[in-house]
Simulated scan of single mutants.
Amino acid sequence: MADLRKLRTQREIQQALADLLLKKTFSKITVTDIVNKALINRNTFYLHYRDKYDLVEQIMMTMVDQSSFSINEFNTTPFYFLRSISNETSDLGHQVINRQRADSEFQEVVLKTILKLVMTDADSSNSQIWFTFGKISAIMAWNNQHGYYYDIIQDADQLQQIFDTEEFPNLTE
């Protein structure tokens, strides 16, 4: 049985990060901010996480583990995969995602975590996975260039269509 103190401390750290993510962008949050919000010692934080990126990675891994969508389906329908995880997220999770949408550092840690999860479940020599991430990165960069015209969750159908057809829509019409 897991140590209840350890679980409680991890929950407090995760809640502190979530609260901060509602107020500041991820790129502006420091470990000092997190430990001050969680009312813990800095060393306690480092007993549980390497840094703030590891903290987000652990939260994401838990979310994916609890999701009903298979990580194997990511390769063919990545935007539906992301929407599925979001749909199973709490109201707080939705608020955090909406607040952090434009923070490229947050997007990067999320994509790296998903890549890590996919690579753990797949053969790393499978070049299709790398092309999938390349296409996602291109679509996200295009979307960023157009002021986040498509919401990654609400517009998953349109983003998945771009992924499938490999054609960007003309947004000037």
Rank of each mutant, 00 (worst) to 15 (best):
I71Y: 05
L39Y: 09
L47Q: 15
F69Q: 08
R50E: 15
I40K: 01
M63E: 12
R50M: 09
M60A: 10
N98Y: 09
E57T: 13
D54S: 11
F106E: 03
T76F: 05
T77P: 00
Q95H: 12
F45H: 01
V56A: 11
T77W: 02
I97E: 14
F74L: 12
L47F: 13
S90W: 05
T62W: 01
N41M: 01
R50G: 04
T62Q: 14
S84T: 07
S67Q: 04
S67N: 04
F45N: 00
G93T: 07
I40T: 06
D103A: 08
N72V: 01
F45Q: 02
T89A: 14
N72I: 06
F69L: 12
Q107S: 12
I40A: 04
V64P: 01
Y46A: 02
Y49H: 08
N87E: 13
M60W: 02
R42I: 08
F81H: 03
Q66R: 13
F69M: 11
N75P: 00
R101V: 11
L39F: 06
N41D: 14
S84W: 02
E105Q: 15
S86A: 15
V64W: 04
Q100V: 09
R83S: 10
N41F: 04
K37A: 10
N98W: 03
D65N: 15
N87L: 14
E57H: 09
M63N: 10
Y53I: 08
H48D: 06
V56R: 02
N72Y: 15
N75I: 15
R50S: 10
P78D: 11
N41W: 06
I85P: 02
Y46D: 04
L47N: 15
R83I: 00
D65F: 07
E88G: 07
S104M: 08
S67T: 09
D91K: 14
E57D: 12
F81C: 05
N36R: 14
T77G: 06
D91Q: 11
Q66K: 15
R42N: 14
V96D: 01
H48V: 02
R83L: 03
V64T: 12
